[in-house]
Structure formats: structure tokens, C-alpha cells
Design a binder for these strands. Structure first.
Lengths: 168, 168
DNA sequence: TTAAACTTTCAATAATTATTGAAAGTTTAA
DNA sequence: TTAAACTTTCAATAATTATTGAAAGTTTAA
């Protein structure tokens, strides 16, 4: 396979994976493009490579910055902004986990917390089933939350390292 | 909060979470409804509770069955099909992980495998960056795959149990 | 067989989400 | 100041995804 071809394939695959996990396809593609670029790129270059509009490129790049996945760079004597991606997979996984926890897990935990407090008659099967499911899911969610918290705080990747070791 | 109200809130929250993770909102809502139902429900009951059409209810229920999250039940002397959800959170997490691995991770692993084989000149920064990113992501993906594999094979929840114990 | 009681399919449509592109805004150099 | 070089915004529109509902299909009892 040609390098140019392989690059396109990577961008496409990353974009598809992103969209299946609720991340904007274009955002994932821009991220993929920057991941395999040795140099930081301008908005213009991103637009041209992926055939997207200036507005889209601008918003997507800003989004990626807010996710902590890419950074701006300024070159001396130039006014253009350049963008480059953090290429450490551990950091990428960490950033994504961090953002999704904040944006999605936290609100759900809040609601589950309220719902576990709903009172009722345990002899009522309707209430009993509701209560059991909510309580169980709340437990799982809390465990996931706690695990992510620890994982995010770990400065090294000792955490995954130690887990993966178990299965070697 | 009233039980009826709390149920709606749970269905809504579950649906929202699903949609943020690339799972059809209605599918997640139907799943939520069955999770908190003590009795198996008919297509009709699902339609009425969630205000969705017969076609939608039918397709969604079949989807949930193919995800291994709900099951059909037949009541003696009746022709209607009843549906109920597996209420064990561990099984739910396991089923979702299993399906997503099959549907999404596997194809990506296949592509990454091909892309790591692309050959080129390591003095070419374009190739070098591409190769490094692809190789690193491939490693991460393989680790995730291996971990899921082990987790899915575990008949008991000793796996999460032992992990969560670390953080108590 | 038949017809009632159900389930499934799928083209049309609605709802949602992503994208465009031009106009407005901002920054910098001279 | 000004104007060129850039970035950002956002209403309009396009693309995608989900839903409807009626028609077709299937199963069962008699």
C-alpha cells in the first residue's frame, strides 16, 4: 500500500470509529490527520486535505482543543495559527476518558443518585424492580467513576500496565 | 419524587446516555423501560408507554435481542410475545462490551494490522510519524481487545471485583 | 382451509445533526 | 489610523439517521 493511500485509510477508519462512539466524524478525522502529521498544520491545510469548509475546520479544531487532544502553535514571524496533536496514546485515552466522564458520566451519576433516594413500598413489585435496577446501575456507575478517577490521576501508566500484566 | 415520575426520568436519562455513546436513543429507552418492569411487556405496552410506532417498537425490540440485552417470553394460552430484560448489570456491561467489540473494535484492529505493515523510509518524517502513530494505536487497541476478551470469558465478576478492590 | 391475531417490512417522511460560506470580528504591521 | 491577514460566528441548507404506518407476511385455532 502507498503511504498516501494508507494515510487516507487511517483517517477514514478513525472517523468511522469516532462516529460509532458518538464523536463527530469530522472531528475524529481532523484528529487522525494531525496524529499522522509530523508538522503542525494550518486551518487551510486541514480544509484542503479533508475537503471541509473554513467554518467547519475552525469549529472542529476549537473542539479538539477543548477536548485537550490538540494544541495551537505559533511560528515566529507568521500570523497563521498552526495545530498539532498530542501523539501519546496514553494521553489521548486519558483525555477522552476525562472529557466523557465530565460531560456524560457525571450528569448520569447525579440523576441516579436522586433516583436511588425515591421511596416506596418494597412489597410493590413495581417499586421493588425499579429500586433494584437503579441501585445496581448506580453501583456500577460509581465503580466506573472511581476507576476512571484513579486512572486519570495516575501520572504514569502503571495502572493499565499492571492490569495488562495479569493477562499476559 | 413519585415513582411514575422517577421511572420517566430514568428512561430519559438512560436514553440520553445511550445516544451520547452511539446507541439509538429509543433502543436505550426501551431497554430502560424493560429494566424497571417487574413483568415482561408486550410490543403494544412498549409502544404505548414510550409513544412510538409499532414498526419502531418491533425493530427496536429485535435489535435489543440481537444485542443479547432482552429476551422473548411466551405465556401459555396466549399468542402475544412478551419481552423482558436481563437485570444483572454485570451481564449488561458484558453484553454491550461483547457486541461493540465485535461490531467496531474488530474491524478497526483489522485495518490497523494492515496499516502497520505499510513499508517506507524511516528517514522520511511523513512515514516515520505515520508509522509511529499507527503502531502505538495498534498496541493500545490490542491491549483493549485482550482485556475485553479476558473480561468476557470470565464467568464470574472476579475481574472487576479484583480491580475495584484496589481502589477501596 | 380460513380468518383472526399477531409480527415484520420498507418506502415515505420527519427529526436530528453536520456543514457551508459569507459576513462580522479581531489582530497586527506599518 | 488603516487595511491586510487572519479567525469566528451563525442562519441557511445539506446530509444523515430515526420513525411512521400501512401493507404484506406468518402463525394458530377451529
Amino acid at each position: 500500500m502507498e503511504l498516501a493511500q494508507a494515510k487516507l485509510k487511517f483517517i477514514e477508519a478513525w472517523g468511522k470509529l469516532g462516529s460509532e462512539w458518538g464523536i463527530n466524524r469530522t472531528m475524529a478525522q481532523v484528529h487522525a490527520l494531525l496524529l499522522i502529521s509530523p508538522e503542525a498544520l494550518t486551518t487551510e491545510e486541514v480544509m484542503d486535505t479533508l475537503n471541509i469548509s473554513r467554518g467547519n475546520a475552525n469549529m472542529t479544531l476549537r473542539d479538539l482543543i477543548s477536548w485537550g487532544l490538540i494544541e495551537k502553535q505559533h511560528k515566529a514571524g507568521e500570523r497563521k495559527e498552526y495545530f498539532f496533536a498530542d501523539k501519546d496514546t496514553w494521553n489521548i485515552a486519558r483525555q477522552v476518558a476525562k472529557e466523557r466522564r465530565k460531560r456524560e458520566l457525571d450528569p448520569v451519576l447525579k440523576i441516579l443518585g436522586e433516583l436511588t433516594k425515591v421511596e416506596g413500598d418494597l412489597n410493590d413489585p413495581e417499586f421493588k424492580t425499579f429500586n433494584k435496577s437503579v441501585t445496581d446501575i448506580n453501583k456500577l456507575a460509581k465503580n466506573v467513576d472511581k476507576t476512571l478517577d484513579t486512572m486519570l490521576k495516575a501520572e504514569e501508566n502503571w495502572f493499565w500496565g499492571s492490569i495488562f500484566k495479569i493477562f499476559k
